[in-house]
Design a protein around this nucleic acid. Structure first.
Length: 119
DNA sequence: CCATTGACGAAGA
DNA sequence: TTCTTCGCCAATG
């Protein structure tokens, strides 16, 4: 059964790459939520699992463009992570935050496949 | 293998 | 509307 285990690992790896591929497609100045990515993957990964995959994100991946469903920066919850980094990166892309520290998902949420950001 | 911990999210109080 | 509970899946001890 160890071979099965290997196949499972391969599947996880594939799911991981799929997450990365989606994140790479997010245009500058736009965002997707963890749950959105989960949904696009046909829920093969839960939103939590998506977050975990991003924990292992390769260098150069625009990870800052993934926020929680409320439009908040979940990275600020991590103990060993620079506070406010995600927000500054997004602000550098032209995104404006509200007083409560969240961004407007109605405005900035991006869906792949449409080729346009219309919104 | 079981318990605990997360870059989550929807539902209930 | 804010806070808590619970389900979710992967990783770690």
């Amino acid at each position: 059964m160890k071979r099965v285990h290997g196949e499972i690992q391969g599947e996880r790896l594939r799911a991981q790459e799929e997450v990365f591929a989606l994140v790479r497609r997010i245009p500058s100045g736009r965002v997707m939520s963890y749950g959105q990515i989960s949904e696009l993957m046909d829920a093969r990964l839960s939103p939590r699992a998506v977050g975990w995959m991003l924990h292992r994100c390769p260098e150069g991946l625009p990870w800052q463009r993934v926020v929680n469903a409320s439009g908040g920066c979940s990275t600020d919850r991590l103990p060993d992570f620079p506070k406010g980094l995600q927000r500054s990166l997004l602000e550098g892309e032209g995104i404006e935050f509200r007083a409560d520290g969240t961004l407007d998902m109605e405005t900035y949420r991006w869906w792949p496949g449409r080729g346009r950001d219309g919104g």
